[in-house]
Nucleic acid binder design. Structure first.
Lengths: 334, 334
DNA sequence: GCCCTCCATGTAATCGATTACATCAGAGTA
DNA sequence: TACTCTGATGTAATCGATTACATGGAGGGC
């Protein structure tokens, strides 16, 4: 593979000049420039980003660690991160943590070795020593979607408090009283916060929450189905099941269908987290939509701010309630 | 950030010894080794993969260019590629071509500059001069999911011929005769092949295909909806709509629902490409399932074979028909 | 006691770019 | 003509690792 030295020899100039052409340095004659370009073309020269990065100490690369690409929420997030980064001249390396701290740390290590300029993490579970150390050392880190308690790192996340309050209001207006919430693990900030917001909203609307109506799963469809089964087996089952993410909603849907129950007649269903196919099922699922693309975009902006020496501030974007038919037909002021 | 030189000084050895420890060279004393590890820990040393890659001329990185991460099929594919590559010690950089040749070429260029060891491409549309040149130069390329006519590169793809034949048999057995197929653009190998297989299967079963019943869209939901509308507006609308990918199926579902038609009573629906939520809609969608994860896995294996100097052979995996309820209730021998 | 072998470790060249500094030609000025 | 200044280009050090080859010391055979 042709090197800068070959191009220089072929064009009859020095490597410095070729490098200047590569970097659009204006102090190169138009004539020399065209000669160099011609040499590059003839040799099919492809600049070596590895060598450049070694010298410049910058890779123009961002690392993104997400919970699971196969989860549409993260897919949309990743897409936005990629698009935004690309527009700013950065390449993105995506790592799939599979919701496991160990995998997450593997990617953190790998990406640091690759010398990514910045790191966007959707932290799984607990604070790991590795992440904590990087945060303390002031590494170029930003948390996306989730935060970690006690770790001082800028974050970009969605705030579902208002949307959950709106959902509870909507449910109440439709006459529902016995509302259950199945959510993710308390070790995830998203799991904790959604549960907290739900309990607060219920209290605000003077609705009682049966202790058995709040269950923690793992944000996967299997646990959504299992918890739904448990709820439906209660002597007094809930009138509404509100699931903590799109996969748990899917599990709930399964269990409800398997029992031959009708939505929303026998039991209503709502989801925290909206995905493109929810409007297409019958009945269309009422959901709280997180601005996934916007989160990704803002995340990149925050990290680029940090890299550019500008102050990086945490961002919290509101999630919004999208009323469809799965909780009942009533119109809602929303 | 600590360099190998610092570690060496701190441990009282030479850089060569540190490098040997990093690379598990057995000729280092156990005692020296522990001293070096201690120094690394104390300095929070992180090896610089950029420098290593420059020297070794290998990045232990694979590039993957897909049509769209937000399409669940590609998400699953990407996930499998990542998992498999990771198990072999490789990192994956994913590029989103957004189904545009121009974007695809941008990523090809970027990934070549990054000196990825191998490149997995799901080619969009036409053969671009860039891709053609790399193929001719014998670059470490593998095509995934799709192939390009006239370009000699190993490929890993799914073959839907048998599954489409099985679907047509299934439809015929249920009494359907007027079957329409809305598919992707003919410029994509997947679009062409699926259409060809459909026509062949229809002929085999002695079913006539009304020319208006075969329409080409763009593998996106919008065109799925538009084409479905056109079909339903025909004086003699089809009894079955078979959509060429999961997004077009979604569009078709929309249009059918919007008209208040019932599936499969008023019109049956089938999809080429299965996604996790198809079993959860009512009625569950009959679909042809492509082994996306297996494609990804095999793709990585093929490219690693190439890199390892072993012969890289093209792979074609059968897609399978998954009968559900959207075409009618009849049991099928499949 | 001498020499050879072997093993652990060190020295220094190298990968391909960037860039501070040096150089040199030509124009402008007195 | 001689001098300076400017602008284009060249020379060589550098980034942080790997690795071929050099070195030196311990141990064994005679």
């Amino acid at each position: 593979m042709a090197r800068i030295k070959d191009v220089a020899a072929h064009a009859g100039v020095s490597v410095a000049t070729v490098s200047r052409v590569l970097n659009d340095n204006p102090s190169v004659t138009e004539e020399t420039r065209t000669r160099v370009y011609a040499a590059m073309r003839e040799l099919s020269y492809v600049p070596n980003a590895v060598a450049r990065s070694l010298r410049t100490e910058a890779t123009k690369t961002l690392g993104l660690i997400i919970g699971d690409i196969a989860n549409p929420f993260f897919a949309e997030l990743a897409r936005a991160v990629e698009d935004t980064a690309r527009a700013a001249g950065y390449t993105v390396i995506i790592g799939n943590a599979d919701e496991r701290a160990e995998e997450q740390d593997h990617y953190v290590r790998t990406l640091l070795e690759q010398r990514v300029d910045g790191l966007l993490i959707c932290p799984t579970a607990e604070v790991t020593p590795l992440v904590e150390e990087i945060a303390r050392a002031g590494g170029p880190l930003v948390f996306l979607d989730r935060t970690l308690p006690g770790v001082h790192v800028p974050s970009v996340r969605a705030d579902g408090t208002d949307a959950i309050r709106a959902l509870v209001a909507h449910l109440r207006q439709l006459g529902h009283r016995r509302i259950a919430f199945i959510s993710g693990p308390a070790r995830l900030s998203t799991g904790r916060e959604r549960t907290g917001a739900f309990l607060a909203a219920m209290a605000e609307h003077g609705l009682e929450v049966h202790p058995e109506y709040v269950q923690a799963g793992d944000f996967r469809s299997g646990s959504g189905r299992a918890l739904t089964a448990r709820l439906l087996d209660l002597p007094e089952p809930p009138q509404v099941i509100f699931a903590g993410d799109n996969l748990m909603t899917l599990g709930a849907l399964d269990e409800i269908r398997a029992r031959g129950l009708r939505i929303p007649g026998d039991v209503a269903l709502a989801s925290f987290d909206d995905v493109p196919w929810f409007p297409h099922v019958d009945p269309a699922i009422t959901a709280i939509s997180q601005p996934a693309a916007e989160l990704g975009k803002r995340g990149v902006r925050v990290i680029l701010d940090r890299l550019g020496g500008r102050p990086a501030e945490s961002v919290s974007l509101p999630a919004v309630l999208v009323v469809r038919q799965s909780c009942g037909e009533g119109r809602d002021v929303s």
